[in-house]
């Protein structure tokens, strides 16, 4: 009986996926395949996108080896990882902390509606405006941060931040953190709002404390959303482009050049190395895919367990209502 039921509804799975698939096929597939194909060609120069040839068979992966052997690409890969880790760890920690505070039933903070709205606000300004603002903040030899530091007596001479590797990385990671923690927080909060309220009610009746409820109910039920956050943040982080490009053009000494900035520069900064840029894009795709699979595997077990737990809980709740 169960079998026939799930079989008869299967067609709706296909049916409801059609709009997505059609839109994807029309608008995204062609450019994507185009990119992959270009990676195996000699496309270069302004007319490179229309006039190219496949590389000879023995050299088919030449663009890939060139990119992988380029010191700048390797460096940009390291930079990307550094910048992502520097911004993601504080970002997810703060977002989780705020989520715990803002969804706690016991310890209601006043004005949390205001805070939730305000914390997201940096995310609605364009990266270009943000980059200009921070450039001005850290201007040398006179600028707000420098005058603050000298007034506080922390330094005697103005600091030329953008010529120094780690300060520039720090600033960029901070901007990313600051722009996105509110976004992550909202995602997590909405995840908590989706948790069946009966679970909390039951726990409350059992006399559970705030932190017990957070760790025993919120966190397990939030796992699927946490997985989403981790995956999207990783994809976003490894594709980081705007801020490193606009803040200091990947400098000093290419220390903030991310892989996407490098891809962009190959493709559009004079030589139009489309084939190599495409190869670099494919390499990045493979790296991201491998990392994503790893993260998924890490979450797999708990994911399944949690799904079952949620269903059980829902069943209980449904019973309660009926009864």
């Amino acid at each position: 009986m169960k079998k026939t039921k799930s079989f008869s509804y299967a067609k709706y799975g296909y049916l409801f996926s059609i709009p997505f698939v059609v839109a994807y096929l029309i608008f995204s597939l062609y450019p994507t395949i185009n990119t992959v194909v270009l990676g195996f060609t000699d496309a270069k120069g302004m007319a490179g996108l229309t006039n190219w040839h496949f590389l000879p068979f023995e050299d088919l992966f030449k663009n890939f080896t060139t990119v992988l052997n380029a010191p700048t690409f390797r460096k940009s890969l390291v930079n990307t990882m550094i910048l992502w880790i520097l911004n993601f760890i504080p970002q997810i920690s703060l977002a989780l902390l705020l989520t715990a505070w803002f969804t706690s039933k016991r310890n209601e903070l006043r004005g949390q509606g205001f805070f939730k709205v305000v914390f997201y606000m940096p995310n609605i300004i364009t990266a270009a405006s943000i980059a200009i603002l921070f450039k001005a903040l850290f201007a040398y030899p006179v600028g707000p941060v420098n005058s603050l530091l000298t007034n506080l007596g922390l330094t005697d001479e103005a600091i030329n931040f953008t010529t120094m590797v780690w300060p520039t990385r720090g600033i960029i990671a901070f901007i990313q953190f600051w722009m996105w923690y509110g976004n992550t927080m909202i995602v997590l909060v909405s995840g908590v709002l989706g948790i069946n309220p009966d679970l909390y009610e039951a726990a409350e009746l059992d006399g559970a404390t705030s932190s017990q409820m957070f760790w025993k109910i919120t966190m397990p039920n939030l796992k699927t959303i946490l997985l989403y956050t981790l995956i999207t943040s990783m994809i976003g982080g490894l594709n980081m482009y705007d801020i490193p490009k606009l803040f200091n053009d990947g400098n000093p000494a290419n220390s903030t050049m991310t892989t996407n900035v490098f891809i962009y520069k190959q493709a559009f900064s004079g030589s139009y190395l489309y084939a190599r840029a495409a190869a670099a894009s494919v390499i990045m795709f493979i790296i991201i895919a491998i990392l994503s699979v790893l993260v998924f595997m890490m979450f797999q077990d708990s994911d399944k367990k949690m799904e079952r737990a949620a269903k059980r809980a829902a069943k209980r709740a449904a019973k309660k209502e009926v009864g």
């Binding site: 270069k44 380029a70 000494a253 290419n254 190959q266 900064s269």
Partner: peptide, 21 residues
């Protein structure tokens, strides 16, 4: 931040990798 030779070397690497020259 870097020596004179390092500066020139870094510059050459960047140009070689981004412009394919």
């Amino acid at each position: 931040q870097v020596s004179r030779d390092e500066a020139i070397e870094n510059f050459k690497t960047t140009v070689s990798d981004t412009l394919g020259l």
